[in-house]
Nucleic acid binder design. Sequence first.
DNA 1: TTGTACGCGTTATCAA
DNA 2: TTGATAACGCGTACAA
Lengths: 350, 350
Amino acid sequence: MKRKVTLKQIARELDVSISTVSKALRNSIEISEDTRQKVKAFAKLYNYRPNNIALSLKNRKTKTIGVIIPEIVHHFFSNVIRGIEQVANNRGYNVIIGLSNESFSKEVINMEMLANGSIDGFILSISKETLLRQDYHHFNETINQGMPIVLFDRAVEEINCDKIIVDDVKGSKKAVEKLISNGCKNIGIITTKDYVSVGRLRTQGYIAALEDSKIHPKASLILKIDVELDSEDHLEDLENEIEQFFNNNKHIDGIFAVNELYAITAMKVARKKGIKMPDKLQIIGFTDGVLSKHATPSLTTVSQHAQKMGEKAADLLIDRLELDIDNEVEEEHYKTIVIETELIERESTK
Amino acid sequence: MKRKVTLKQIARELDVSISTVSKALRNSIEISEDTRQKVKAFAKLYNYRPNNIALSLKNRKTKTIGVIIPEIVHHFFSNVIRGIEQVANNRGYNVIIGLSNESFSKEVINMEMLANGSIDGFILSISKETLLRQDYHHFNETINQGMPIVLFDRAVEEINCDKIIVDDVKGSKKAVEKLISNGCKNIGIITTKDYVSVGRLRTQGYIAALEDSKIHPKASLILKIDVELDSEDHLEDLENEIEQFFNNNKHIDGIFAVNELYAITAMKVARKKGIKMPDKLQIIGFTDGVLSKHATPSLTTVSQHAQKMGEKAADLLIDRLELDIDNEVEEEHYKTIVIETELIERESTK
DNA sequence: TTGTACGCGTTATCAA
DNA sequence: TTGATAACGCGTACAA
């Protein structure tokens, strides 16, 4: 087993100094053609590669991005990561993943673990518990220590940094308008409690679309699901709650759901009740994932372009990282980039 | 903006030496209670945290695991990562993700990028292109340099290391036996080309199950899909190929598909042709993901316990990492852990 | 009880 | 053309 070779070892073998080896490998003209060749040949033979950790220490940057997301088994988030990873890799960065599991404390611990030199900056989406507690001190402290953060999807005003978001209001408005123009008269929404920002915003879009069409939003047509029901373990409870919702709204003919799971579950309930889709009931979801594509009928959704969000987030972060180097000036010009949503029409609407 | 504080800065402020600060913070009894308190108070005030990079360099270990997978937007792989991340975090390790995108060169590049000191060991699943080329030199070189690797799911004999695998043969055998005992007489399989090890093994299981029941495997009932059809972009081609398969096998009454996508697509084709499930056709898939759970009818599948695979892989790797420290002896006792599959019965079988 | 010196692997600066 | 030295941040053996 040949251990990784270092400059020092090469120097010793070739009986030259460490700095000579270093320079030779970097093609410095200071070094004679002769020794340069010799060193390079030797280095190649032993497959020398500079040690990243030593470089990180010296350069005071790790060329690594920390990504913290609430959940990885999720089409949206894994797509975002795919986008981040692609851009990061192309620009010479690695990606460290941390999962918060929607928990405040795991989010904090993960950030602390990474903030101590392991990474150059964060890309993250806030956990539900954090949103609920509205405690954002760990983000602001991190930023204050000079570590840039890019928030995506779940962002809040209280944190002053770059953000990549979807225009949730506009996206859901478009969806609901589609239902209206398709002839739906009783459009319901299945959404989250208001402290989940994306849920709140999408509910806003729903109401705005109705009001624009002079339709008075009815409270009974708005179903706000509790967080706990959002997990895999409570699929049945979710189903029951939605079934109840159907029972309370006999004349419902259109549903806008703020995520895939709610939409797919609504479809399942409707099918059980023998409601024909899209004839008697049209459904639109938010977030374009595998479920939507492969559902029966396939689901019309608002696509958030998750991968593009990841790409933009990575570009934004790396831009800032590499800007800070040249201009030591604090360019406090934080950007908020809005990714346009797109309505992908499938079989669940007419 | 207060930058991260170092031992040196604290030492200067308090007018003591760096090592005094270091010792004080680590509660060394060498240091007087007095200075200890003083130092600790100061450190706390400035929120001192040791720099991970410096520690890594000093200790020659990074407490970071490198994970390279072919694809992240995939229920199986993201579940594995979830398992890895959970164990790694509990044991004080970080997780760096690299994506090979099923490409040989990306796999090599990613590994080289991480192998130069960034991580202590790898957990990975081999890309399809690598399996096709059967070129495993990069793995063996990495192992030779003293960096342990744990392979999961897609593993090969040519690489001598720890492995976490599913008993593909047994798992698919169980599935096909289920179809047989449910009364299916003409059972087809939708699988991959043979160079994809999991596809090959699952095909073996299929054949074994048939032979055990004295059923002669018919070539026409075996459909081997080409890789390219495996991507999102070629969904229609996949559908056409499967439709052709149905046309060639009018009396087919059972299908075993080696992954979720094939199974779900087969269901779609069957539905289009008006074949009632599970009455006229029973289907079982492999890999338990969201698609299976939410399909109509919901799909009976062979679950691989992806998350558990990730947990085991992480434990195995970390065990080896921490073993190498104590015993400098080369414990070349590589383990192969087989994770039992489980047949999850849903509505697509009787 | 405190401080000095060294090493982890690298590069940059300055001296020979 | 080459080499010695310092520095990145930390911990520790040893000296004071």
